[in-house]
Design a protein around this nucleic acid. Structure first.
Length: 582
RNA sequence: CGGGACGUAGCGCAGUUUGGCUAGCGCGCUUGGUUCGGGACCAAGAGGUCGCGGGUUCAAAUCCCGCCGUCCCGACCA
């Protein structure tokens, strides 16, 4: 490509509305433009990156034996009613009507469609297993699109669905996808962490997410600094010592605490009760049942761990009616009519302080097992940085991350609802066992930039760079203004350009009539992995100037060796970013 | 959906508090000339329903009311 013929609208200044690096740089480097909140155009450069990621995904899916199809983006609403998701996903569904007022949806995901396909086309165990995938635009009416390409209303996604005869088959399909995902992200030059993920309200059996650590992430993950334990914070558990056994306290005793409403208040004089000596009493409605939840004062509840399909905090009036006090003075001592669930770390705790169910009053000398009727002991905590790894002696760290991939064991939820059955060897009809596997292709592009940039711009991995090589001739005065470039080194630049193209290297020749500074800045901003400067000055120093965008390494090579040197540099750049799958 | 900020030329901004504007500045763009290794310089020029609608006023970018859009925090996130 000749730059003068391209459409690469780089911006000199940071766009006002872009805060995170990927958003800012994708706009500035001229890869994308925003049309509306959460809706973007991919310009030629951005589309090249998107297509490269897409192609890597396609190759690895094909290699894993998955079969590519293209399903419609327009879905009949009735299909979604059959699985109940027209209601449960109502808020994110884009609804459209045709001329006869028939209702359609723009697909946010394709379980309903692919299962309908399987139900119609797969009838025998002999046809299984099958894995069907597509790379397609998804539509979700996100309540709050944000962070550039990270959370949008319309995005490119690879979604695959496996169909197996039994759980063992599902395990194999799941593992195959897991491995394929590691290859995909490795080839994209992006470092991902695979974490255990929350299975969700539908109770799927197993789920992993592929995460890119980034401050711009919307998820939080906990990671061990010693072993490979890593989990989404929704799912993460930690090893925390329970209270050391100690002698029983004296009898429970009330004491006045006027104005005290928080754990923090009680830690201050005159009370001086450390947060980990306090019991935090939360009141939740779990599946319509008012329930007390007990946590240590220095711990946070993780709602995803609650043993209920529907959970919400109780309203103050509900609490007052049940316990006779308002939040700030609640406790479970003597409560027997309501279910009490306590976090594991409270087991055996003695000499604790908690609310007395009387405003402005607390109770001390509370021995949890002696004084509180605990119905269930569960892990309810949100893991915090510094807590122990559940698997080894390491320490957990909590970090923000972007979810770029998700593998999920579905089971028979959709196959049962939509009649996707097969006949087994004995002629019995059974629902197919399904798994689903998603990769946010456009989100991956953003995640790569989040991970690969510096103060000057993007540092694309070779495998997904819009162009791998940027060739910059520094044009001497006498040839500017339309005159034919006829000096020797410009012919050499043209020759290298042709040779690289012959080798199928993606190369862009910056033939713009601009000053060198402009070209250098743009090349750094866009982040081509290898830059080659052809100029009189470089030739005087020994040849063409090769510069590696990531390492900054510069070399001067004689023109006859330039082609090989560029190829070597690319290979080197590729190896630097290579991430070996575990 | 709650809270906050913003909306003025293609981009980034000033002007709004205290109404007087025939709306400025930088970058970019056009033309001519000079320049050429890290976003050059000089000169001339084009480009704006001041987000939209209504109101107050002799007079509104500026004050008032309503709406829309965008971003940030939160809620939400198969």
């Amino acid at each position: 490509m000749r730059w003068s013929q391209a459409l690469i609208p780089t911006l000199r200044e940071d766009p006002k509305d872009a805060e995170i690096p990927s958003h800012r740089l994708l706009l500035r480097a001229g890869l994308v433009r925003q049309l509306a909140g959460g809706v973007y155009t991919f310009l030629p450069l951005g589309l090249r990156v998107l297509r490269k990621v897409e192609q890597i995904v396609r190759e690895e899916m094909d290699r894993a034996g998955a079969l590519e199809v293209q399903m419609p983006a327009l879905h009949p609403r009735e299909l979604w009613e059959q699985t109940g998701r027209a209601t449960t996903l109502n808020d994110i569904l884009f609804k459209v009507k045709d001329r006869t007022d028939r209702q359609w949806l723009l697909g946010p995901t394709h379980e309903e469609i692919v299962t309908t396909l399987a139900a119609a086309e797969i009838h025998s165990y002999r046809q299984l297993p099958k894995n069907i995938y597509q790379i397609q635009t998804k539509f979700r009416d996100e309540p709050r699109p944000r962070f550039g390409l990270v959370r949008v209303k319309e995005f490119l996604m690879k979604d695959a669905y496996s169909f197996d005869v039994d759980e063992a088959g599902l395990d194999r399909s799941y593992q195959t996808m897991y491995t394929a995902y590691q290859h995909i992200f490795s080839r994209c030059g992006v470092k991902t962490i695979d974490v255990e993920a929350h299975s969700g309200a539908m109770g799927g059996s197993q789920s992993h997410e592929f995460m890119v650590v980034s401050p711009a992430g919307e998820d939080q993950i906990a990671r061990c600094d010693k072993c490979d334990y890593a989990a989404n914070l929704e799912k993460a558990v930690s090893r925390l010592a329970c209270a050391a056994p100690s002698a029983p306290s004296a009898a429970v005793e009330r004491f006045p605490t006027p104005g005290v409403r928080t754990i923090e208040d009680l830690t201050k004089p005159p009370y001086n009760v450390a947060a980990n000596r306090q019991i935090k009493t939360l009141v939740y409605i779990l599946d319509d049942q008012l329930t007390l939840l007990l946590m240590r004062g220095d711990h946070q509840l993780n709602e995803a761990k609650l043993p209920a399909s529907a959970a919400r905090p109780a309203h103050p009036d509900e609490i007052k009616a049940a316990l006779g006090a308002l939040p700030g003075s609640l406790g479970a001592v003597g409560v027997t009519k309501l279910p009490v669930i306590a976090d594991e770390t409270l087991r055996g705790a003695t000499g604790m302080v908690t609310g007395a169910n009387q405003d402005d009053c607390h109770a001390q000398n509370v021995d949890v097992e002696r004084d509180i009727t605990v119905g269930r002991w569960l892990d309810l905590r949100t893991v915090q940085t510094g807590e122990g790894c559940p698997r080894c002696t390491g320490v957990l760290h909590v970090e923000a991350a972007i979810e770029v991939g998700h593998v999920f064991k579905l089971g028979t939820k959709y196959s049962a609802a939509l009649g996707a059955q097969y006949l087994d060897e004995s002629g019995a009809a059974k629902p197919m066992i399904m798994g689903c596997y998603g990769i946010g292709v456009s989100r991956t592009v953003a995640a790569i930039v989040e991970q690969a940039h510096d103060k000057d711009g993007i540092c694309w991995p070779v495998s997904v760079a819009p162009y791998q090589v940027c060739l910059i001739p520094v044009i001497p005065t006498k040839t500017r203004g339309g005159a034919q470039p006829d000096c020797d080194f410009l012919k050499l630049a043209e020759q290298l350009y042709a040779e690289l193209r012959d080798r199928k290297i993606d190369v862009i020749l910056d033939d713009r009539d601009d000053s060198p500074g402009v070209k250098f800045k743009d090349a750094d901003l866009i982040g081509f992995p290898v830059r080659v400067i052809v100029s009189e000055r470089a030739l005087a120093k020994g040849g063409f100037e090769l510069k590696n965008r990531i390492t900054g390494r510069v070399a001067f090579v004689p023109p006859p060796e330039a082609l090989q040197a560029v190829l070597d540099e690319l290979r080197l750049a590729e190896r630097q970013l290579e991430i070996k799958p575990r």
